[in-house]
């Protein structure tokens, strides 16, 4: 069972998020897929430092303990926060699109934008 670790699962989650991003038409599900991709990278980084017999990097002073590598964890904290910030902002952009086109379906929104554009061009002529 060596192969079943955070890195492989992280890559699988990345692919699931990528597929959701490409195949689903709902913008909100697309955003969730984007968040999943970010999460999968974080999981990979955390698992790279994971060591079965290690303990969390909080120094207790007991001798003979092996601590987990603290660097990826500290790195990942910033990534999670930025993930939250970016997705909240893009959620607002989705809400603006919904306000204007009354749907979250990306294909329908694209069609409406296309119609508007052709309408504008006729108007200019």
């Amino acid at each position: 069972m060596e192969w079943l670790n955070g890195v492989t699962i992280g890559v699988v989650l990345f692919v699931i998020g990528l597929l959701a991003l490409m195949l689903r038409r709902d913008l909100i599900v697309k955003l969730l897929g984007l968040g999943l991709i970010n999460t999968s990278v974080i999981l990979c980084l955390i698992s790279l430092g994971y060591y079965t017999r290690g303990v969390a990097p909080i120094i207790t002073g007991k001798p003979g303990q092996i601590y987990i590598d603290p660097l990826p964890q500290a790195l990942v904290l910033s990534a999670i926060v930025i993930n939250l910030a970016i997705l909240a902002l893009s959620l607002v952009f989705v809400m603006i699109l919904v306000e204007r086109y009354h749907t979250t379906d990306s294909v329908k929104i694209a069609q409406q934008v296309e119609q508007e554009r052709s309408h504008d061009q006729e108007h200019i002529r």
Binding site: V7, L48, G49, Y50, I59, Y67, D69, P70, L71
Partner: peptide
């Protein structure tokens, strides 16, 4: 590669 690699975060610890 996975698992503990000596040297990676040793200095901080």
């Amino acid at each position: 590669f996975i698992g503990r690699r000596p040297g990676a975060g040793e200095q901080f610890i």
